[in-house]
């Protein structure tokens, strides 16, 4: 596999960090994008050392500041002399109860996970298409597959994101844009800290491994861990009357 030029939004923590380390170990060129310059610098240095000293670039990019998207991606292209893959793992989460208590938090979540993630993807898409193609790999969630009582709002944001990514694929596949939607199940990261891990809860590195395999195989949809493909195949068929009653 030849070296890829990868820009990652969200590599400072959790699933993004685990995935970035796998790219680094494999020898890919990396630029990390994120909101906190200190954390970005530490992440870039860590990845560089894990990549046997290859420099890892960084650029500031905050999903709450749409103006930061274009300069960040531009900088990534500059630093690597091109761009083959853009990975988006940045996102926020809150439980349904937390969001119902706090309208501001609800708006923030919809803004970050849906509105601004889509806007970032639009910018990334534009740049990749301009170069003749490339891969856009975005973390949505199994929560976007089927409405559930316990995640109405987060689920809606992820459902919207998933549908958007499907649309992008339909519209631009012919032009060389490869859109990959990652649908992780529950993972033990800081995002889910304090929640009781449900069945099939995974470690960040297991998710990263599944994503690496999926990317290598050219998959457009990656369930991680893969068991979720089958779980959802069943859950999606449950009638609404049943979903109304189940607790999860």
């Amino acid at each position: 596999m030849s070296t890829r030029r990868i820009a990652l939004l969200g590599a400072t923590a959790g699933l993004g960090r685990a995935l970035a380390r796998r790219f680094a170990a494999r020898g890919d060129d990396l630029v990390v994008l994120g909101r906190d310059p200190t954390s970005l610098a530490r992440t870039a240095e860590d990845l560089s050392l894990r990549a046997a000293g290859r420099p890892v670039g960084m650029a500031r990019c905050d999903l709450l500041e749409a103006e930061s998207f274009a300069p960040a991606l531009e900088r990534a292209e500059e630093l690597m002399g091109g761009l083959d893959l853009v990975v988006v793992t940045a996102g926020v989460f809150a439980t349904q109860e937390e969001l119902e208590r706090d309208a501001e938090a609800t708006e923030h979540l919809l803004m970050v996970d849906l509105v601004r993630t889509i806007r970032f993807c639009e910018e990334a898409k534009r740049r990749l298409l301009h170069r003749g193609g490339g891969t856009l790999c975005v973390f949505s969630s199994v929560a976007g597959e089927q409405a559930r009582r316990s995640s109405v709002l987060y689920g809606a944001a992820k459902a919207g994101l998933t549908r958007y990514l499907e649309g992008l694929d339909l519209r631009h596949a012919g032009e060389g844009l490869h859109v990959v939607t990652v649908k992780p199940g529950f993972a033990r990261t800081s995002m889910t800290e304090g929640l009781s891990p449900p069945p099939f809860a995974a470690e960040a590195d297991e998710i990263a491994e599944a994503v690496m395999t999926g990317l290598d195989r050219g998959r457009r949809v990656i369930y991680a861990p893969s068991i979720w493909r089958w779980v959802l195949a069943v859950v999606r068929r449950l009638p609404r009357a049943v979903m109304r009653r189940v607790e999860f």
Partner: peptide, 8 residues
Amino acid sequence: MARSRQRT
């Protein structure tokens, strides 16, 4: 936000 959740 996560810190508001306390699980023993």
